[in-house]
Simulated assay, not measured.
Amino acid sequence: MNIIELFEELKIDKNKILSYSSDDIIRVEKQVNVEKRINPDIDSNVANNLILALKEYRKELYFIVSSRILYSLFSKTNYSRHHFSPLQDYDVEKIQSFIIQFLNDDLVLFFDQNLSQNKYDFINDIFDFKDCFPEDALFQLNKKLSGKLDAILANLNQNSPNAEVIPYVGYRSFYVLLSYFSSIEMDSKMRSLVNIVSERYNANKQSDFYTTCISSMSGYVAYDPNLTAILVGNREAVYSNSIDRGASSSSGGMSGKSIFFIILAVIKILLLFSKCSSH
């Protein structure tokens, strides 16, 4: 449990914390002591840190609990937008320091859990506040994402690549997340991936796997705008080819409507034949 989860557990009114008096904080301390006797999950350090935040970091705490994205992240709740008011301007460095002091472990755990489960969209959802996150946590996330890209390259370079090992190669959300860390080095790895996937696709344009890969890779916004243009162009080419393929198969075979009318005609012929036989 972290201080925001405890804040949620105690049902503290976030709209009042900026005007808290010493008596209000004492009241919260008493409430915490009661809850600690009831709930063994409440750690003394977390309880003390919440009181410290209420005393000395009230503005930073207020910002976290007033942000739907950050509050949902750290409290592990999912309140609707109507539960929150529009955010005011904030000091990025102070919010970073606050997260480092009280919430860094929870942030890193959130990154690690979602990376391991390939839930990149969950991480993307909180990156509106990327500038508030500690640099070290982002550095570690960048390294792990780069490692996942290396794993894709290593797998596809094999004679018989195993797509089950790297399912995220076809997830657009993975490449969108990579975009937050675009660099010359990341672009270089993406170019290698483009070359491999494009070559495999050109060898078999019927491949759903490589079609999906190329389409998803366009989610990466590169450090080099030329690479971004290539990724988007590849997606458009694949999309155009898919349409042409669909049109070709439609003209080359029977449509569902044609089959329906043929079946209907056969039924009518059989009915007519049956009537003739009865006479």
Rank of each mutant, 00 (worst) to 15 (best):
L103C: 04
S216E: 04
E164K: 13
S255K: 09
F174G: 01
I269L: 15
A137T: 03
N226R: 14
A222V: 05
G252N: 13
L87I: 04
S251F: 10
R235G: 15
T211M: 11
N195H: 13
L149R: 02
I64S: 03
Q88P: 04
I25V: 14
S192E: 15
S274M: 11
I38G: 07
V194Y: 08
D150Q: 12
G233F: 04
A265G: 10
I269W: 09
S67E: 04
A151H: 11
K36S: 06
E29N: 12
V238C: 07
I95R: 00
R58E: 09
Y171G: 02
Q206C: 07
L52N: 12
I126H: 03
K76V: 07
N48G: 08
L178F: 02
K119S: 11
L145P: 03
L271A: 12
V232S: 07
E135A: 13
L264K: 11
A53F: 01
F181N: 01
A265E: 08
S67N: 09
K36T: 01
K36M: 15
K55A: 06
I69V: 15
H83T: 12
E56L: 13
G170F: 01
A47T: 01
F7Y: 11
N15L: 10
D112G: 05
Y71K: 01
F110G: 02
L107C: 06
D150P: 10
F102R: 03
L115E: 00
I42V: 14
R58K: 14
I3W: 02
S72P: 06
R68E: 12
Y223H: 14
G170Y: 00
F129Y: 15
E60R: 03
L138F: 00
Y20V: 06
C132F: 02
L54Y: 01
D43H: 08
E135G: 09
I3P: 05
V108L: 11
I3T: 03
N162V: 12
D112K: 13
P134Y: 00
Y239E: 14
V221A: 07
R200A: 08
N226V: 12
F122A: 10
N33L: 13
K275L: 15
S218R: 00
L107P: 02
N45G: 06
I42D: 02
S278A: 11
S192W: 01
D224L: 09
N78Y: 08
S218K: 01
S216H: 02
L18H: 03
A203P: 02
E60P: 11
K275F: 14
E135P: 03
D13M: 08
L193N: 02
S242G: 09
D125R: 15
S80D: 13
I26Y: 09
N15Y: 10
Y210R: 03
G219M: 04
Y171P: 03
Y175P: 06
M217P: 04
G252M: 07
K16Q: 13
S251I: 11
I64N: 02
F129N: 05
R172E: 15
F174S: 00
S250M: 12
K148A: 05
G219K: 00
F181T: 00
R191M: 10
N157H: 11
A247G: 08
